[in-house]
Design a binder for these strands. Sequence first.
DNA 1: CACACGATTGTCT
DNA 2: GACAATCGTGTGT
Length: 176
Amino acid sequence: MGRIVETEAYLDASDLASHTARLRRGRVLTMFGSTGIAYIHQSYGIHVMLNAVAHPDGGVGGILLRAAEPVEGLETMRQRRGGVSDLLLCSGPGRLCQAFGVGLDDHGTDLTVGQNIWIGSGFPPQSIRAGERIGISRSRELPLRFFEEYSPHVSRGDGVRGLRFQIHAAANANEA
DNA sequence: CACACGATTGTCT
DNA sequence: GACAATCGTGTGT
């Protein structure tokens, strides 16, 4: 279990970075359907990415889960991730899926039901910032990446993470 | 049927 | 910083 600390929104065809803008068949059709369902795809044929279908009534889109702060089951995560440092367990969309054991098989799962994989509201984020999305070339100007400020568990991104974490650490040192 | 292209990550220089 | 790994989908011939 973990706290979601970083997400990205992908919209309808007006958002050129969204799969809904260039794919018309296969798994992507899920993002045209009911909200709360898992849209899972592979990136570069290797890494698994988990999205929650989310959009206005009659709309299209989804939320990509990019990073989480591990809360429970760290031993299992460490095994699945091959013994990397704890800060790297879930700090990326592919890493998160590997740590939580999410596979393509989970595509179509109802994430609002507490079964194998689900999303609840028990661990709200502290301070949310918005910025440009990562790893895309089109529609980069849209501020659709949301992350918890100061969290050391967000993905690499633009390098802001390391900086903010250092500032945070320095602030703690001053208080101590 | 033959390409090109990613919502990434780990490794090597 | 550069680069390979790897596969479903779209486009072109």
